[in-house]
């Protein structure tokens, strides 16, 4: 477990270091842009704008805030039931 955490952390740190070392002028585009969309554009099928505009300005921020508040509460509630504290054994009658 410790090795996994260490290796995973190292990979993330390497990624973050590489990200920081290149400075803000370097663009770390996603593979959807560098591979999928590039290939499709060269093949004559460039991507179109999304059918549904997800919103602009602070609208998305508002949606994220409301959704995060509701979701965080429910996540904590479900998590406590599925993974109870170590000193509380799970219900013997439950398989899940």
């Amino acid at each position: 477990m410790k090795k996994t955490v260490i290796v995973g952390t190292l990979i993330l740190l390497l990624g973050a270091a590489g990200f920081a070392a290149t400075g803000p002028d370097k663009k770390w585009a996603g593979v959807d842009e560098t591979v999928v969309e590039k290939f499709a554009t060269e093949a004559g099928h460039p991507p179109r704008p999304p059918l549904i505009n997800p919103g602009e300005g602070d609208l998305l921020l508002f949606v994220f805030l409301v959704a995060g508040t509701v979701g965080g509460f429910i996540a904590g509630y479900c998590y406590r039931g599925l993974f109870p504290p170590k000193n509380k054994a799970p219900d013997k009658h439950s398989h899940v």
């Binding site: 770390w28 585009a29 996603g30 593979v31 959807d32 842009e33 999928v36 969309e37 499709a40 099928h45 460039p46 991507p47 179109r48 704008p49 999304p50 059918l51």
Partner: peptide, 10 residues
């Protein structure tokens, strides 16, 4: 986000 997802219209 950056992904394998295939965008609209491709």
């Amino acid at each position: 986000a950056s992904a394998m997802h295939i965008s609209e219209g491709i």
